[in-house]
Design a protein around this nucleic acid. Structure first.
Lengths: 340, 340
DNA sequence: ACTATCCGTGAAAGCGTTTTCTTGAAGTCC
DNA sequence: GGACTTCAAGAAAACGCTTTCACGGATAGT
């Protein structure tokens, strides 16, 4: 039972120990710790020596409690595991670290509901980064009312709310895809493998696809919009469905790279040559896209994360800095669309 | 100018507010919060209602300070961005979450040295997960002396120290590769694209390669060991070097999948057919390996992370549970080795 | 009935910092 | 040169919770 391992407590060195060793008050030690006021150089030296000798490390909990800030940023994502998060996480982690903040990550996919959001809420973090689908409208409204600092990543604030957010140019990205497919490869029946309906990006990409068709004078055929959920398996079966129903198409624009790979798989099974017979394009330019020669739209995911952190920190520091940003995207032609 | 945005404080609801609304003492509220004692059902209900109505969320800092445990686990990794960490992180995150712990992630690659490890040390986390190269010997020794709970992932404790660790079977994994290459594809001059010298896994994989050669009666040629660092670019230039120097080889065993992809790239440039002319095998079975038809050795990375967390938590809870574990690996043949 | 045991609950003592608030000494000004 | 600032540094009051202790009221034992 957990009755042992409690005597560890003895070894805990606190600010009091440092103070008495250095023969100063704890206030002065605290001042050194935070650089919050001028301290006599001699005492400073004694204190620094004491800290070193004792191996003192201030307890974050106590600092947070007394100082009413945790120096911690919370990140809410649906699934930490996804390839998509890797670059974003890197951006976030780096920026947070640079600013001297810790990062507390929480996934919402599992039983995140009830008491789950607790820890990320008030005062357990100084601010929150909400990623796309993790930005539950209720949560957003609640945080907003409370005036708790947070920023939205890869999704836009509910209509009417002025909340900082960082997104990418989805519409123009997918428009670029459609134009390229039509202009460079003469494709005219382009399937749009969409994403989850609730997803902001998926919706925007579909809109961009539609808008591009119209501006190119091509007809929009609802029959060419295939359901997807940003995953390869579902994408594959969606494409298989089209093939089975003998729907004619000469290109597939998937709303994300994962789905694109699924489509490629399904086409391959059917003996259809990707690139030559049917162009396939994804979105996001995930790490594997280059390996797989997948044409796609590159989004500066890492930069999105980093910028989100920057905005958040400025908010936490009391700034208004509502600099919502939309990062540009660029089309990256590769073999899967017929290029090269 | 951070003088505004400070009046937010007013809205903070504490345990005191809950207690007075429910007309009980804060002790009783605390008991409900922690389920630490029986409470009259009627009061319980009043308290729960109050918590709900007030939207009360206990402050982690206060709990940590008073309860002397943070319910937070620290993870030290060199680079959060790497593909390799995705599955491990998923495992860790899931297990931590399941046990009701938060996850604090810190990268060591940048200026992690000095004051950086502070926050992860004593009492800012209840325990630490150290990943491979992040497990600085000094740090390990220090933590060990202090009796601070921690476990090693993907690396073994320094000689003589009895520290819980979770690793995978590297030797047998690479041995399986060599055997397969020799037996199934008749390869006899197998290049070993090694990893960073300081890396435990890289060393073990190289050992396994050597041991396998010997046990198969094949000569070990130091000239076939090419330097690498677990990255594609370095791997590619390493292979180019071999080609330029006209070193003869009919297979490449890369100590990790990233390097394997680099090798494949370099071979491709030289017009050498991967699989047919030269077999290429990686290690880890990262997400992209399947897409790229890369033969590799699958390591249960996710499980390693999850198990690490489990051990750590048992340590935190005062258990001895020094169940160091070595997970098995399995060879996965794919087109790049000549199979299919 | 009368004491001995139990147990739910409240009071209060921390937990380790940061942050006023004070204080006394040094420095400034006419 | 005496009264007024200035300022480094200590004392003490939060910060919001957990936990120990003590107190009655209720239950049980004889």
């Amino acid at each position: 039972m957990g009755r042992k391992a409690r005597e560890r407590k003895a070894g805990q060195v606190t600010i009091v120990d440092v103070a008495s060793l250095a023969e100063v008050s704890i206030s002065t030690v605290s001042r050194i710790l935070n650089g919050s006021a001028y301290v006599d150089p001699e005492k400073r030296e004694r204190i620094e020596a004491a800290i070193r000798d004792l191996g003192f490390a201030p307890k974050a909990a106590a600092r947070a409690l007394a100082g009413r800030r945790t120096k911690t940023l919370g990140l809410l994502v649906p699934e930490i595991s996804d390839d998509f998060f890797v670059p974003m996480l890197r951006g976030i982690e780096g920026a947070a670290r640079l600013a001297g903040y810790e990062l507390l990550i929480k996934t919402t996919s599992y039983g995140g509901g009830g008491r789950g959001n607790w820890a990320l809420g008030e005062h357990n973090t100084d601010g929150l980064l909400l990623f796309a689908d993790s930005a539950d409208p209720e949560l957003v409204a609640d945080l907003s009312v409370r005036g708790f600092p947070f920023v939205l990543l890869y999704t836009e604030p509910p209509a009417g709310m002025r909340i900082p957010s960082v997104t990418v140019e989805n519409e123009s990205g997918s428009a670029a895809v459609v134009s390229h497919l039509a202009a460079a490869h003469g494709r005219s029946r382009i399937v749009c493998l969409s994403g989850p309906e609730s997803n902001h990006d998926a919706a925007a990409r579909l809109r961009g696809y539609r808008a591009a068709l119209e501006s190119l004078g091509m007809a929009f055929d609802p029959g060419l919009v295939a359901p997807g959920d940003f995953s390869a398996p579902v994408a594959a079966s969606s494409i298989r469905g089209l093939l089975r129903r003998k729907v004619a198409f000469d290109a597939v624009f998937a709303c994300d790279d994962g789905a694109a790979m699924g489509a490629i798989g399904a086409l391959g099974e059917a003996g259809i040559r990707v690139g030559a017979d049917v162009s396939v394009v994804g979105f996001d330019d995930l790490a594997f896209a280059a390996h797989s020669s997948l044409a796609t739209v590159r989004a500066p995911t890492e930069e999105v994360g980093a910028h989100g952190v920057r905005i958040l920190i400025s908010l936490v520091d009391g700034g208004e800095g509502l600099e919502s940003l939309v990062f540009p995207t660029v089309f990256v032609p590769r073999r899967s669309c017929g290029c090269e």
